[in-house]
Design a protein around this nucleic acid. Structure first.
Lengths: 310, 310
DNA sequence: TCAAAAGTGTTATCCTTACACCCATGT
DNA sequence: ACATGGGTGTAAGGATAACACTTTTGA
């Protein structure tokens, strides 16, 4: 017999979704309330699994088919999540990939570029300005506020690991956000004195920005060893589009020639025979994802070649 | 305002722990009830975070200091987890690493080698006998029971990916178990007819063996890019011991020379100056883990060199 | 004719793998 | 002496990173 479960004080269970789509070559997440909330809903006990519960209300609420879904993390931090109500909430978050493709300039209301929340994570055009301009100086000031030199050293090392321009690691999205949180540089951190002149990057309610950071981090790590990009692509695409998609997710530029070689070396795609109506320049061959690959190999991703010079 | 959380029918929240230690060079997990259960306890709402809740009762229940802890997964499958009571249970599982070192032959009651549950995962001595002898034939029979040739093809491909001897991937512990579950080859799968002549490998109650598989898979993947092995090692160790430890976790033999080179190339360890009382052969230098590395680099693991020939 | 993007080929470098070999100790 | 595990050096192969260059379209 397993130990009895908690019998006093019911704890609410909430499901959160980081729903990602590529719209206009930009990674976007579905949000509510002017971009301040991720879609979330209760887990009713009447679903056979957590995933089916999630799919049910996400599709009801957003009218989007939900393709690839994967669990992210389960939080129950009293201090952060539901700071308001005395009610205890356990929130289980998921990453979902969908194929929404709105080509018009006017975006649907709910979709927001994820770089709106993490402007320092977008290195596609070189080092992002807000990083050197605002973020780093504030971090350095935070380091200096520690009186204990050991603490200062530790803080400096963590800053170096996570934010060093020379060796930027795009996967550390969550760690970077957590460090900013700890340093009191994001409004979500609360604290006595409200953050004056907050950092660039829109905040979210509760710990939703942390959940978003978890989702981005997971996705960035995953595209390197599993072919998940294709869940976000239309059925047919050019290699250029594919590269733009990967760059958008990874937040950094890629070396064109090597990217192409890696992709077809791995047998991830096949030509459809057609070519695209060019968007400038020479028309490009269209490709489609070879779904069979999922059954052929255990690991197969779009490994990222190093960044192109500029 | 976020959507309101579930207000009817309280759902119990349970924490499960896969607690791993290396005892006698063997990876062992802490169990209860003759090895049929993982330690688990309720999440009481009065802990600030899930981790502190976990630490609290694990340390109370087992009297073990709990070092490294990481979340594994959250399940709520009605069909599998709490098949007995009508009560709905959400179980949040954790992986914990501890430094228990019982050198005596008579093990403490609760510790079990994890290969007791997954004998086909131990390739340290070459291809495990139960695999070719019992497991593969049963899987092949399962493939043939499908009438639809498309289903047969799909099943065969999944078997090939996950169980092919030629390209054995030690990280797929969970996928392999899930496939066996689906094929009805493990007792836990239940079903009308009880499994006659079950596969080698001890079963566990509820979905605890699935949780264990998740923990092993996570740990095997992680040792390749984060220095978590050292959480399981004594403060001082020889490179030989370290290699045995990694082999025990990965379940496969490693190439000695390359293992050594990788380890010190990465600056993971430093000599203590002392040498060990030899266990046969020439005395070995003792090393200790350079904890500073955690602050120096974002990624640093004991990458696995390929297996030695025999 | 030129800009822009697609697409091909080649080279230098590094990391992984594999193999051969020597060293220090106990029996 | 020899078995056993510790420890070092180096060559072969493959993958990555970087570079130069050609092709095909639209304006």
């Amino acid at each position: 017999m397993p130990p009895a479960a908690n019998r006093s004080r019911p704890i609410a269970i909430e499901l959160n979704a980081v729903l990602v789509a590529l719209i206009d070559e930009e990674p976007q997440v579905l949000t509510l309330e002017e971009g301040a909330l991720l879609p979330s809903g209760p887990f009713e006990g009447d679903h056979p699994t957590l995933q089916t519960g999630l799919r049910a209300w996400v599709e009801r609420q957003t009218h989007h088919p939900l393709g690839y879904v994967e669990q992210l993390y389960t939080f129950a931090d009293r201090s952060r999540a539901a700071a308001t109500s005395g009610r205890r909430i356990v929130s289980i978050s998921y990453l979902g990939l969908t194929r929404e493709r709105v080509t018009a300039a006017g975006h649907e209301p709910g979709w927001q570029s994820w770089y709106r929340y993490f402007p320092w994570e977008d290195w596609r055009g070189g080092p992002p300005a807000p990083l050197a301009r605002q973020l780093m100086p504030r971090l350095r000031r935070w380091i200096d506020t520690a009186s204990d030199p050991a603490v200062r050293r530790s803080r400096r090392q963590r800053m170096d690991i996570n934010f060093a321009e020379a060796s930027w690691n795009e996967d550390l999205v969550l760690q970077r956000y957590e460090l900013l949180y700890e340093a009191g540089l994001v409004p979500e951190a609360g604290g006595r004195r409200p953050v004056t002149d907050p950092l660039p990057g829109a905040p979210m309610h509760y710990d939703h920005r942390r959940i978003l950071a978890t989702g981005i981090a997971r996705l960035r790590a995953k595209i390197k060893y599993r072919p998940v990009v294709f869940e976000l692509m239309p059925p047919d695409f050019t290699l250029g589009q594919l590269q733009l998609a990967v760059e958008a997710l990874a937040g950094r530029p890629l070396h064109k020639q090597n990217f192409r070689r890696l992709i077809d070396q791995q047998g991830l795609v096949e030509e459809t025979g057609a070519v695209s109506a060019a968007t400038g320049g020479r028309p490009a061959k269209l490709y489609r994802f070879r779904r069979e690959i999922l059954l052929e190999r255990a690991v197969a991703g779009s490994k990222l070649p190093l960044s192109r010079s500029s």
